[in-house]
Simulated scan of single mutants.
Amino acid sequence: MAFEPFEKVALIGLGLIGSSLSHVMRREKLAKAISGHARSAATRDRAMELDLADTMHEHAADAVRDADLVVLCVPVGVCGLVAQAISGALKPGAIVTDVGSVKAAVIRDVAPHIPDNVHFVPGHPIAGTEYSGPDSGFASLFENRWCILTPLSGSDDGATARLTAFWKACGSDVDVMGAEHHDRVLSITSHLPQLIAFNIVTTAADLEEVSQQEVIKYSAGGFRDFTRIAASDPT
């Protein structure tokens, strides 16, 4: 069954995930209009140059007005502040989701600011690269990657189903689980490897008797993979 496009999707943040969502929504015609918000004027200007949004806004609240889907593509530590800023501008019946790699903390910070007539369905697309910024996105980022949704107790089943269909239209496989279980699983599969990678790369950099040229020259694929992971955004 063909996906029924959203009338308007608001992307709050146009880094790797936000810009990739824009590209795939354009390609698959998943939204009739896309609005965006970024803190810096340079990012807003670049997003318009790349056609990542039909309109870009300095203030997040302006971006979400009349949006049917709002995606918080910002670091988990600021999701609560963004939710507070957009709360009064959210359209009744809209779906709000996020892309953070931890879910319990996002729910704790965001849920209190979501009006009763708006559906909050947290999400985590398990996809990424070591690159960031509006130029880093590409339409195939989510293809054959898992996206995990962690709806709250009592959440509207229709909103969860709609968001599931959206992520599938982006190319993702979708699973639904509780937030705490998600965080336990991802702490093993994602967060622990990233922590190990940071420590290995830092240790290599601190070995004064080993030159940087030697590290690069004699690195096998495994070490290069660690440096790629360590270079990625931990948020």
Rank of each mutant, 00 (worst) to 15 (best):
A161W: 08
A127I: 02
K29F: 04
H182A: 15
G100E: 11
N199V: 09
H191E: 03
K103D: 06
E4Q: 12
F198R: 05
F142G: 04
F6G: 00
G77D: 06
A53F: 00
L149N: 14
I196Q: 08
T189K: 04
F142D: 08
S153L: 03
E214S: 15
T150Y: 08
R224F: 00
P125D: 13
G171T: 13
L207N: 02
I148M: 14
L163Q: 07
A179Q: 11
A220S: 15
M25W: 01
P122Y: 15
L72N: 05
E7G: 09
A67M: 02
P234Q: 06
N117T: 09
G93R: 07
W167N: 09
S101W: 12
D135G: 03
A197E: 03
V215M: 12
L52Q: 06
G171S: 13
I216C: 12
A47Q: 05
F138V: 01
V78N: 04
V70L: 11
A85M: 04
A220K: 14
F120S: 00
T160K: 03
P193T: 10
I17D: 14
D173P: 14
S190G: 10
T189P: 07
Y131P: 00
P122H: 12
D173F: 15
A47V: 04
V74D: 09
A33P: 00
L152M: 04
L141F: 14
S87W: 00
G13A: 15
L14A: 14
P5L: 01
G221E: 10
G100Q: 10
V99W: 05
Q84H: 05
E214T: 09
G80N: 02
V64Y: 03
A67C: 06
I12G: 12
T43C: 02
D54C: 00
G77W: 04
K91E: 00
A10R: 03
T203P: 03
T43D: 05
N144L: 12
E58S: 15
C147H: 15
P151V: 09
